[in-house]
């Protein structure tokens, strides 16, 4: 094997064979499992609008675990945030191109090969 892009050879597919736009999306924006969960959650419940604490409750997580992840997703343009007093309220972006990428990403995750490759990518990148 040579180079980073051919390191993962999972279920017959190298990471180089993954949709490059989705791979870039994964690397830049959905680079943790919590973000992955949150992206899927907002895709499935697209008109959610709430605080980190309430979203944590919906997602079955600790608010402290997801507050920073939600802020990152807002920073990267997947979510938008607006203030409620001192608290940010998060909702899904209305940007059509980003929504399309999210829909493709979630659909791709139904494919086992893509999913396994993406999981390995996140595990490896978080170990570094």
């Amino acid at each position: 094997m040579s180079g980073q892009s051919t390191v993962f050879h999972l279920a017959g597919r190298t990471i180089a064979e993954m949709d490059q736009e989705l791979l870039a999306f994964l690397k830049a924006k959905v680079n943790t499992f919590i973000k992955w969960d949150l992206v899927r959650f907002f895709h499935e419940n697209p008109h959610t609008s709430d605080t980190a604490e309430n979203i944590a409750r919906y997602a079955g997580r600790e608010a402290t675990a997801i507050a920073a992840e939600l802020a990152d997703l807002a920073e990267s343009g997947i979510l938008v945030s607006h203030p409620l007093g001192n608290l940010p309220i998060y909702s899904l972006t209305g940007d059509a191109r980003t929504l399309d990428l999210i829909a493709r990403f979630v659909a791709a995750c139904d494919d086992r090969q893509f999913r396994v490759a993406a999981i390995h990518y996140i595990i490896r990148s978080n170990k570094r």
Partner: peptide, 25 residues
């Protein structure tokens, strides 16, 4: 149709604003 998942405190605060998310939707 829009199905909006939110909480009482957020929706109440949102509706009090001019041009809030629920009003816009």
């Amino acid at each position: 149709l829009r199905v909006v998942l939110t909480s009482p405190e957020v929706s109440l605060s949102d509706l009090r604003q001019v041009g809030g998310r629920i009003e816009t939707m």
